[in-house]
Amino acid sequence: MIWDWAFAIEILPRLGQAAIVTVQATVMGFALAATLGLGLTLARIAWPRTALPISVGVELVRSTPLLIQIFVLYFVGPEIGLVLDALTAGTLAIGVHYAAYCSEVYRAGFEAVPRSQWEAAEALNLNRGTALMRIILPQAIPPVIPALGNYLVALFKETPLLSAIAVLELMQTAKIIGSESFRYTEPITLVGLFFLGMSLISAALIRLVEARITQGVRR
């Protein structure tokens, strides 16, 4: 018997519990990525001097594997007095990693806002801060929401990496079930199906949002 339905149904509740941890890590990781990424981009605009160190930092984070970054935060962190539990360390690493990607997305958004918008704000005697927050930001963010959505899906699919530091998310739970029962087929296939389902749903949602936004922008 290659596929055992009874076993598959029996392990569903445990996988469901684990799915909650996966979703938790995704939501918190993406919240961090989206805010920190925006922060980096705004810092770059507000203080041009920070542009070089920020782009070097972004390049460093994007050029090294997330798995290693998770290990560094989890294993090297305690050596410098940063003791985090596995889920926090993992979520933090994922968040920072994707913040680097998101900051590039935001940057593209800001660069796409015509310079004349800055000039118009200046002509209306708005200061730089107000111009940025009230004029530029509202035009820069909506066009990049689909791109951010793609990174949300990508981030979601990276959460199985947390199993490497023993966070009890989906993949780790599937592995534990596998080692307890010597049946890997059902748990790992179910995890795969879960990711496939969630990814397809979110891809459809992103297309929907995209359609909405392009409608809103058309004048």
Binding site: K157, E158, T159, P160, L161, S163, M171, A174, K175, Y184, I188, V191, G192, F195, L196, S199, L200, A203
Partner: peptide
């Protein structure tokens, strides 16, 4: 649509 790690496993 599925995670690289899941595919590997």
């Amino acid at each position: 649509g599925t995670s690289a790690l899941v595919q590997l496993f």
